[in-house]
Simulated scan of single mutants.
Amino acid sequence: MAFGAAVRVARLTQGIAQEELAAKAGIERSHMGKIERGEHMPTLALILRIAAGLKLSAAELVSAAERNLRAAAHDSDGH
């Protein structure tokens, strides 16, 4: 879910429709939706294609996902 949330935030920040990002990444829109909702864990190859579609490095996208994970862990600790 953390990776999907990072993709969604980056996509919305850039004003890109989900269908447009899916086309840029070369995947089905329904698959992109599953990734954004955390229902599908993308392969490294797919992460690279999504990052390219967002004009980001894979490292930037994964870093955003890591921040989401840390925030979720912090929230679940009750802090």
Score class of each variant (00 low, 15 high):
residue 32 M to R: 05
residue 42 P to N: 04
residue 13 T to K: 14
residue 33 G to Q: 07
residue 22 A to P: 04
residue 6 A to P: 02
residue 47 I to A: 14
residue 53 G to W: 08
residue 64 A to Y: 05
residue 3 F to P: 01
residue 73 A to P: 00
residue 63 S to T: 13
residue 14 Q to K: 15
residue 30 S to Y: 05
residue 22 A to E: 02
residue 73 A to R: 15
residue 12 L to E: 13
residue 29 R to D: 06
residue 36 E to Q: 09
residue 76 S to V: 10
residue 11 R to N: 03
residue 48 L to F: 09
residue 7 V to N: 09
residue 53 G to I: 06
residue 68 N to M: 11
residue 19 E to I: 11
residue 55 K to V: 06
residue 68 N to C: 10
residue 22 A to V: 00
residue 74 H to L: 15
residue 77 D to H: 15
residue 38 G to D: 06
residue 41 M to Y: 11
residue 33 G to K: 07
residue 30 S to L: 10
residue 73 A to M: 15
residue 11 R to M: 04
residue 28 E to D: 15
residue 18 Q to C: 08
residue 52 A to K: 14
residue 2 A to M: 11
residue 17 A to L: 13
residue 20 E to R: 09
residue 27 I to P: 00
residue 48 L to D: 15
residue 56 L to E: 03
residue 60 E to Q: 15
residue 26 G to M: 06
residue 50 I to Q: 03
residue 19 E to G: 12
residue 60 E to I: 07
residue 4 G to I: 08
residue 4 G to R: 04
residue 24 K to Q: 02
residue 27 I to W: 01
residue 7 V to G: 09
residue 16 I to H: 01
residue 1 M to I: 10
residue 47 I to L: 13
residue 3 F to E: 02
residue 26 G to Q: 03
residue 7 V to I: 11
residue 67 R to H: 06
residue 54 L to D: 01
residue 15 G to M: 05
residue 62 V to E: 10
residue 38 G to C: 07
residue 74 H to P: 00
residue 58 A to Y: 07
residue 78 G to T: 06
residue 27 I to K: 00
residue 52 A to N: 13
residue 78 G to Y: 02
residue 45 A to G: 11
residue 44 L to M: 14
residue 43 T to I: 06
residue 31 H to I: 11
residue 46 L to N: 10
residue 33 G to F: 06
residue 77 D to Y: 07
residue 24 K to S: 03
residue 56 L to G: 00
residue 47 I to G: 09
residue 69 L to H: 08
residue 18 Q to N: 04
residue 52 A to P: 05
residue 78 G to R: 05
residue 48 L to P: 00
residue 30 S to E: 10
residue 9 V to L: 13
residue 64 A to P: 00
residue 51 A to T: 04
residue 37 R to K: 14
residue 77 D to N: 10
residue 71 A to N: 11
